[in-house]
Design a binder for these strands. Structure first.
Length: 258
DNA sequence: ATGGCAGGTACGACCTGA
């Protein structure tokens, strides 16, 4: 089974890229973030034509998350849950669903703007709630994958210029502690369970030829529970869509499970 | 220190992203 995550930075603009990637990669589950569209504009028909169903929670302009599932291989989603139960929020940042005995959660973690700002404080409280709810979910589901744009580079090796970034937002010690706390609930960072090339990133700034110079960050992650970790066969970031015209600034990350 | 690029809103610049 192949599971994946992709911050598409507007599903309206990126629909062709998503359709091409689904066709080429045939993931069984794909978590999307930053849809930037309301539910009435979600491309149900186009995805259905490729054999994919979807559950989604969108809003105007910002945020918005979805789970796409390959209908030929996956049962229908059950127990669809939008947002964090312990954190009432107007912003649509989380959607979870159960496929057979697998719980799959797609999350778009708060960016945080800059350390010490009001948005950074919101990010801290939001991550605290995510920890609380992930702990609760872990009591219900042993096979759980939490995927998404975490807006945290877990370590210096996940930053193209650690000295330059320092302890700025996405790299600050409190954010990294929050990421570590999620792992401490019994999860692994799938990407780091396997050998990877140095300077592997999932996001590159649109400006200053960021991608061409590989000036990026690894902020998109697949977290696996222990049971799923034991099934992990491969994990990779696919840079190909980032090379296309009018790309998302994020690349998809995928993991193969036995 | 700032802006640079991109998307959305809405048709002006401005907000947000990471």
């Amino acid at each position: 089974m192949k599971i994946a995550s992709w911050n598409v930075n507007s599903l309206k603009v990126r629909l062709e890229h998503v359709c091409e990637w689904l066709t080429a990669q045939q993931p069984d589950l794909l978590g999307l973030q930053e849809l930037k569209l309301t539910d009435d504009k979600f491309p149900v028909t186009e995805l259905d034509a490729l054999g994919y169903g979807a559950v989604f929670a969108g809003q105007k302009t910002y945020n918005g998350v979805a789970i796409l599932y390959r209908k030929a291989s996956m049962p229908a989603p059950l127990d669809v849950q939008v947002n964090l139960p312990s954190f009432p929020d107007e912003q649509k940042r989380v959607i979870g669903a159960t496929f057979g005995d697998l719980r799959f959660v797609s999350a778009y973690v708060v960016n945080g703007s800059e350390v010490g700002s009001e948005k950074y404080d919101y990010k801290m409280r939001w991550l605290e709630a995510l920890r609380t709810d992930l702990a609760a979910w872990s009591n219900t589901w042993t096979k759980l994958a939490l995927v998404g744009d975490f807006n945290i580079a877990p370590a210096d090796e996940d930053v193209w210029d650690p000295a330059g970034w320092g302890e700025a937002v996405l790299c600050s010690p409190p954010e990294r502690q929050h990421f570590r706390a999620l792992l401490d609930l019994g999860y692994c960072d799938a990407f780091r369970q396997l050998p990877q090339a140095p300077a592997s990133f999932s996001w590159w700034d649109y400006r200053q030829l960021g991608f061409q110079k590989n000036r990026g960050l690894r902020i998109d992650h697949i977290l696996l529970s222990k049971t799923l970790q034991a099934q992990l066969k491969a994990c990779s970031i696919d840079r190909a869509p980032r090379k296309k015209p009018q790309p998302s600034d994020h690349a998809p990350i995928w993991a193969e499970l036995a």
